[in-house]
Design a protein around this nucleic acid. Structure first.
Lengths: 229, 229
DNA sequence: TGAATAGTGTCTATCAGACATTATTCG
DNA sequence: CGAATAATGTCTGATAGACACTATTCA
């Protein structure tokens, strides 16, 4: 049905995941130590081939579950972009569609199906490390996407376990943007933004200081007005 | 080297292009009438298979040139996203990476290499028409990306042939956003935005009214402060 | 001069950051 | 009470939209 010129052979498509969480006061990314060639023993983003019967989103959700054991419904998962430079994978022509996943501090992930070891690493450290394939570029794109989305969307709440406080949310912004934010102005802006936070009416008592009001995620996905960096 | 389970066979990767221009006071998209099955005679976005030796960006640039005869360097070209639902192409497992191209009112495009007929169609009309594959969704995603990017980036100038006037640029915003903008406030904002417009010192005399100052694109890619819809 | 478009100035409500102040809890 | 954090209030400068006004051209 196709000439080989029109429809190139030997092509495969994978998904790679940039999974971020806030942990120990730092933005961390889930990495694996590769259990096979190429880059055996090297650091890489989790991922795998898309199966014949599944779509890209489904493949990303499946890989997410296999690598972390976490229900994908509890995380924010969105497509980042596709990568397809001819030399990006020494095995041949492998296209990769990268996904960005954001979630609360997750249980330490289990070993994946590739018998690879998965673990969290601070993003700053991961950017200095040598990552396999073009994963350094994918990580960089994922970080920039996450930073940008915090401005004009409500995804920052994906990093928070419900219920959460305004200070919890502020620490997410501070860690992702690597910047200090004025607590009182931040409080005013996020509580006034329509559909961002829903008060639970309850409070969380800390070791010190006035108890903070607890919130759940609101229904809005876009943040109006945006919170500018 | 690979088991068939790990690396699925019979997979191909294509690029599809959402090419927008402003023409006759409306946002228009480049469509082709398909010259072969499937969807023979139907309307579709231009596109084609990625070749063995080229990357995604290169494939998009090549297809752009083949469909429009226009030097890709003169257009803004960026990746939109990847599409890969199993049933999206009746020929089999075809992944598509969609690109968004924005350019000034281009010469009427030439027939493509697939012996297909290419032509401009107003976006509103194209959204009512039946498009092949999942191209209606791709067009919709492209339109939303273009609308959003006009807010916080300088890409709107990609629609203007240099040199251009502030009114030319305003008409781009009005057509893409489908909204009227206050001319005087628009003028103030775009001329003050750092790196957006570079004055040429020259003016364009119209049939009527005071001659308008002519500008070229500035070096900035992000628009600060953003122009909100 | 009148019509039309370009460009500037002005007014006001709103919103940002900065920071003071009050509220609530624990030790 | 003192320390610490949460939450509200206040002040000021910047900006947005609305719109008046001036500038420049052609017929």
């Amino acid at each position: 049905m196709f000439s080989s010129q029109e429809r190139p052979d030997g092509v495969s498509v994978a998904v790679d995941l940039v999974i971020f969480t806030v942990r120990d006061g730092a933005l961390q990314v889930l990495l694996i130590e590769r259990g096979k060639e190429p880059f055996l023993g090297g650091l890489a983003l989790p991922g795998g081939y898309v199966r014949g019967s599944e779509g890209l989103d489904a493949a990303a959700a499946r890989e997410l579950f296999e690598e972390t054991g976490v229900d994908p419904a509890r995380l924010h998962l969105e497509q980042l972009r596709a990568y397809g430079e001819p030399g990006r994978d020494p095995r041949g022509r492998v296209f990769s569609v990268a996904y960005l996943a954001l979630g609360p501090d997750l249980p330490v992930p289990v070993a994946g199906t590739d018998a690879a070891t998965a673990f969290w690493m601070p993003v700053k450290k991961a950017q200095s490390a040598e990552l396999a394939f073009d994963h350094a570029a994918i990580l960089s794109d994922g970080l920039e996407r996450a930073r940008a989305k915090l401005e004009y969307s409500t995804v920052a709440t994906a990093f928070c376990e419900e219920p959460f406080t305004v200070a919890d949310l502020r620490r997410v912004y501070e860690v992702v943007w690597d910047a200090k934010l004025e607590p009182s102005n931040f409080h005013r802006k996020v509580t006034r933004a329509e559909g961002f936070l829903v008060p639970t009416g309850r409070h969380r008592v800390a070791d010190l200081g006035r108890p903070a009001a607890l919130y759940r995620r609101g229904g809005a996905t876009t943040l109006t007005p945006p919170l500018l960096r």
